[in-house]
């Protein structure tokens, strides 16, 4: 192609898993066929002990990406410089392929809820987030990936859709995206929008990573619990996403009710299979 756009994305890593403590030993012993692991940054922002010991050994054999939950990029508090300093230190030690956090806020007035709260999709919030993402990227020296969160409330004064907001943040701040396919499904169910319309509005050149996860359907509302296998409808959306975005690094996220490693490997194989089929069909078309 004559006019090659600047390549924003890192090379894809394939199919990964979230690294969880109950699997440390099994990973070192059986060296499972996982292409990479994602670690929760905050679990390793500690002086020493078991998590750091195992991560150092696992990263000898697998590429690592870092995923945070405490950046609180949308908070109206000042950026937490101490946290960013710790994150930068950890990044220098772990040398992850990339770093992600969530497009949300987690607290205000220095009080933390340790939960991912949605932002109002307003021009004010957008500008605020864009400024902060730029500041964080300057400190970390790389593009940040931002992940869409599951949400349970809709704000009256939102001026745009979640997908427009997500796209605008990425483009204006020149950052990357981590699309959580389950979160798109959960929020589409909770708020009554079309998940396909969401996926189709996201720019192809900025999606670096996918999350797949399970949830709890409580009838009127779906709670994003990460304690169940991925459901069929989310697999269908994943297939749709692969057709749109291509071979994006994909992983299964399980945070609770953690099964033996083999079970997650089987789920990951399903992702491999679906992605392969979707990509073959595109190539044949």
């Amino acid at each position: 192609m004559p006019h090659h756009a600047e390549q924003l994305l890192h090379p894809p890593l394939g199919f990964g898993l979230g690294l969880r403590i109950p699997h440390y030993e099994a990973i070192l012993e059986s060296r499972p066929a996982v292409d990479w692991f994602e670690v929760l940054s905050e679990n390793y922002m500690v002086p020493g002990g078991k998590p750091r010991h195992y991560l150092d050994r696992i990263r000898e054999n697998y590429p690592i990406v870092m995923h945070g939950v405490s950046l609180s990029i949308g908070s109206s508090d000042p950026l937490n410089r101490d946290y960013l300093k710790q994150l930068k230190t950890l990044t220098d030690q772990i040398e992850p392929r990339w770093i992600s956090d969530h497009l949300c806020w987690t607290g205000v007035d220095s009080t933390n809820l340790h939960d991912l709260m949605p932002l109002p999709y307003t021009e004010e919030a957008l500008q605020h987030v864009v400024d902060r993402v730029s500041a964080v990227q300057d400190i970390l020296g790389c593009r940040l990936l931002l992940e869409n969160v599951s949400s349970y409330v809709t704000y009256k004064h939102s001026e745009m859709s979640e997908w427009d907001f997500l796209r605008e943040v990425a483009q204006r701040a020149d950052s990357l995206l981590l699309l959580d396919i389950n979160n798109i499904y959960v929020s589409s169910f909770n708020h009554g929008f079309d998940p396909v319309e969401y996926i189709d509005a996201i720019p192809v050149n900025r999606v670096q990573q996918f999350h797949l996860a399970g949830h709890r359907n409580q009838g009127g509302c779906i709670i994003d619990t990460h304690d169940e296998p991925v459901i069929d409808r989310v697999w269908e959306l994943y297939e749709h996403a692969v057709r749109r975005f291509g071979a994006v690094s994909t992983m299964i996220e399980r945070d609770d009710n953690i099964p033996p490693l083999e079970e997650l490997l089987a789920e990951l194989d399903r992702a491999r299979h679906i992605a392969k089929q979707a990509l073959t069909q595109i190539a044949d078309a």
Partner: peptide
């Protein structure tokens, strides 16, 4: 600030309350 009927808004807020307390 929220969309929805009064009871719907109340239980939606409760989800966040429960999440925070349980975390």
């Amino acid at each position: 600030h929220l969309v929805g009927t009064a009871s719907e808004r109340a239980w939606r807020i409760d989800i966040y309350r429960n999440n925070a307390v349980s975390n």
